[in-house]
Design a binder for these strands. Structure first.
Length: 813
DNA sequence: CAGGAATGTG
């Protein structure tokens, strides 16, 4: 791995000595200065100009303390960011005054050393100096930087005492601080009560609303400002463009673009960058390109915005083209944000190699550790199926936020590692290892698929309640996942009810409900819903057809299946993907035509995956065709040599055919691979308590009664002689198999327990982690008949509804 | 005898 990462990739040139980001940003600094110095003074950009003003060389051996020279030296140290040196010099000064203290506090605050700024302020006060109107803006900024709202409020309270609560600079700092800590009302109060408001006050409000995520108020404030006769500047425009982007308000974005032109701000590179971002986020990448093409001096940020725009609008290959252009045309080196922008492209294209070279480039350039970069890497590796790498990065991260956790949880669920996902989700809650984090919509969207696969109905209800409590149920994406979860947990009724309750149904809502009926074996309803969806004017997408074709294959609806398969390209312009072909192979397998299925695999334009061969394997098993099964298994194992299910299925087939030497051979192979057969487990709930059973269960507290019930049931359905007929021909070394006879399979135990612990009239719901075996399927049918109870048994793929001696699956699964 | 607040790409 390490070697792959360190391989120089053609995407990144880092030969040119002149293309460092440092040089790039200096180029950018020079631009505003040369253009019009006077305008720049009134509209700011002090950060940069300050850096380049008076570079009088400071010598630390200053002779006369307390003189003007000393103060100047201190200032230039502070301005160049050398706070350590400044601190040393400060300690040497004998006659301190408020001015010198202010220089130090400003130095800390503007260099991001907020803690130190506050400490210095405290020290100053304790030494008897009184803070003045210059001190407070720095201190308030430091409180904001620390997100320390209590400190900010304390300072605010002091201002009234010393009568500085009206100072424009002080109030502006308060607005920024309150917005930063998220206290919009406090910021609004300060703004409303200011006797005099200047441009900065308005701009701070506009930007403040934007950073708290209230783009609407930000844009309203921008308009309000003009009504008050206040002329906007580049700061106002940049912030309100940001607000337009985050709200995806193309119209207001365009209006601001007009203002930009009217006020001759269109040559400002920051404004141009904001415009690119706005147009990209509003989905008009051509406009963004047009703005981009007119920029004379582009910097890394501009390029990043453009590359990010391409990625956002799914122009993945353009994003890489622009990476090259950026390096060749403008001799600029990509920075960490370029990488972060590119990683989703790698993920979407499944371009693992590019992903790895992006990672490698980040390592070589020293961009790591970097919270966002690492999180994007976790996401990329997760999506590319490189779970180990994702895990490795996540675990090594020194700092993690909710987004990082979400990315790792999603990586697990996307790669079918549901147990790990659930474990991580639990760790997120228990704040043993980190600051408490409250899951958000993305967390739930990521974890719900794992709940769908693993949870009991009761656990499903719990997570649903939690989502409701956090006020996230109105989120369509989450509602969709909840509907699917209930269906997968066995409660189709609730799933349907919740589906109808979704206010803004999107195409995914429909896909989910169609799939819900599919897994419960109700294809007619699936098709009905598909028609209903079209009547409502919702355009189906590829996933809709996965749901629909699954439904047809689960229920064995041959003709309908082929009709939909042919129609998707012809009527909807949707090219069948690998999943669609998979459904069709299931369908062919069901009809028993294995040759046709094999032919179909050979003919299809996509490279068959292990899953495709898995469909053929299942079909071979159902049709008792060992030769086809071996053929499919060879393909599966060449792609996934650790596919436990494949070994087990083949071994079972050999066992049924009495080919014991082959059974042993497979067992040997599994041992060599270090694989163990999945322990079958059946879960049934009673009083919201999950009761888990394994084959030959021996630890349940009502074990005796359950076995008695099972005995009675088996006698009634005439299976009590079964044990001897099956096992008597087995060779001695496989006699231990005897214990594994289906009579004591977990499903039967769960059903028995379910029957005695639930009210008559309610169905018995059992969830299985493996497919139900044929013997148990037969037994369940008979049990449903003699007990007159509905039994619902879910396996990883479908739900069997046993009623009156029949199963909804039509005996094919 | 100086000094202060707000901005673009993740």
């Amino acid at each position: 791995m390490a070697t792959t990462l360190l391989v120089q990739n053609s995407f990144f040139n880092n030969n040119n000595s002149n293309n460092t980001p440092e040089n790039a940003s200096q180029k950018h600094i020079n631009t505003p200065k040369t253009r019009n110095p006077r305008v720049e003074i009134s509209s700011g950009s002090s950060n940069y100009t300050r850096l380049r003003t008076k570079q009088s060389k400071s010598s630390k051996t200053v002779i006369e303390p307390g003189t003007l020279t000393l103060t100047r030296d201190l200032q230039s140290l502070v301005d160049s960011g050398s706070m350590d040196d400044a601190h040393h010099l400060f300690d040497k000064i004998n006659c301190l005054d408020i001015y010198i203290w202010n220089v130090m506090i400003r130095g800390f605050a503007s260099n991001g050393l907020f803690r130190e700024a506050v400490d210095f302020y405290r020290r100053m006060e304790s030494e008897g100096f009184k803070a003045d109107n210059f001190t407070y803006p720095f201190v308030i900024k430091a409180c904001g930087g620390l997100l320390w709202s209590i400190g900010g409020e304390m300072v605010h309270a002091k201002l009234f005492k010393c009568g500085l609560d009206w100072d424009v600079y002080v109030c502006n700092s308060l607005i920024v601080m309150y917005m930063k800590v998220g206290c919009v009302e406090c910021a609004e109060r300060v703004f409303d009560e200011m006797p005099v408001r200047d441009l900065v006050s308005w701009n701070s409000m506009i930007n403040g609303y934007h950073i708290v995520g209230d783009g609407v108020s930000s844009l309203m404030c921008f308009k309000e400002m003009q009504k008050h006769g206040m002329r906007h500047d580049r700061f106002s425009v940049i912030s309100s463009l940001g607000a337009s982007s985050s709200e995806r308000f193309l119209k207001s974005g365009k209006e601001i673009h007009c203002q930009v032109i009217k006020n001759s701000l269109e040559m400002d590179v920051m404004v141009q960058t904001s415009l690119i971002d706005m147009y990209s986020k509003c989905g008009i990448v051509d406009y963004a390109e047009r703005v981009f093409s007119r920029i004379f001096s582009r910097n890394v940020v501009t390029w990043n915005a453009m590359i990010g725009g391409y990625v956002l609008n799914a122009h993945f290959s353009e994003s890489f083209t622009f990476l090259k252009k950026m390096q060749e045309d403008d001799k600029l080196s990509p920075d960490a944000i370029t990488m972060i922008n590119l990683l989703p492209s790698c993920a979407q294209l499944g371009a693992l190699l590019e992903g790895k070279s992006t990672h490698g480039y980040g390592i070589r350039k020293g961009f790591l550790p970097h919270l966002v970069f690492e999180t994007s890497l976790v996401d990329m590796y997760g999506r590319c199926g490189e779970l180990k790498m994702a895990e490795c990065i996540f675990e090594s991260m020194t700092e993690k936020n909710l987004v990082s956790w979400n990315a790792m949880i999603a990586a697990y669920t996307q790669n079918g590692r549901n147990k790990k996902a659930l474990k991580l989700f639990q760790d997120l809650w228990s704040n043993k290892f980190h600051e408490p984090l409250t899951p958000d919509a993305i967390t739930f969207a990521s974890i719900l698929p794992a709940y769908a696969e693993m949870a009991t109905l009761g656990e499903g209800r719990q997570i649903h309640a939690l989502i409701t409590k956090l006020g996230l149920v109105l989120n369509t994406c989450i509602s969709n996942s909840i509907v699917y979860m209930y269906a997968k947990c066995g409660d189709l009724h609730i799933a349907r009810k919740l589906f109808h309750g979704i206010l803004c149904k999107d195409v995914i809502s429909w896909n989910v409900i169609i799939m819900a009926y599919a897994i419960h074996g109700l294809a007619k309803r699936s098709i009905q819903l598909f028609n209903e969806m079209r009547e409502k004017g919702i355009n189906p997408n590829g996933s809709t057809f996965v749901s629909l074709l699954s439904s047809c294959s689960i229920c064995g609806m041959m003709d309908e299946g082929w009709d939909y398969f042919n129609s998707m390209r012809r009527d909807y312009g949707i090219e069948p993907g690998i999943e669609h072909y998979g459904c069709m192979i299931d369908l062919l397998g069901r009809s028993g035509n294995l040759d046709q299925a094999k032919h179909f695999i050979e003919e299809m334009p996509l490279v068959p995956t292990a899953k495709i061969w898995g469909s053929l394997l299942t079909a071979s098993r159902k049709n008792n065709d060992i030769v086809s099964a071996e053929f499919a298994a060879r393909h599966i194992l060449s792609l996934e040599h650790d596919n436990t299910g494949c070994y087990v299925l083949l071994s079972n087939m050999y066992a049924e055919a009495g080919r014991w030497e082959d059974v042993e051979r497979i067992q040997g192979l599994m041992e060599k691979e270090g694989l163990e057969k999945t322990v079958s487990c059946s879960v049934v709930e009673n009083n919201s308590e999950a009761h888990r059973f394994i084959n030959q269960e021996s630890s349940h507290n009502k074990l005796h009664m359950i076995y008695n019930v099972l005995d009675i049931l088996l006698r009634k359905i005439g299976e009590d002689v079964y044990v001897h007929t099956v096992t008597k021909f087995r060779p001695p070394n496989l006699l231990r198999k005897r214990a594994k006879s289906p009579v004591n399979h977990s499903v039967r135990l769960a059903i028995s327990f379910g029957l005695i612990s639930t009210t008559v009239g309610n169905p018995v719901l059992v969830r299985n982690n493996t497919r139900i075996c044929e013997d148990c399927h037969n037994a369940a049918k008979k049990i449903s008949e003699i007990t007159k109870r509905e039994l619902i048994v879910g396996d990883p793929k479908v739900f069997h509804h046993f009623r009156d001696g029949y199963c909804s699956c039509g005996d094919y699964w």
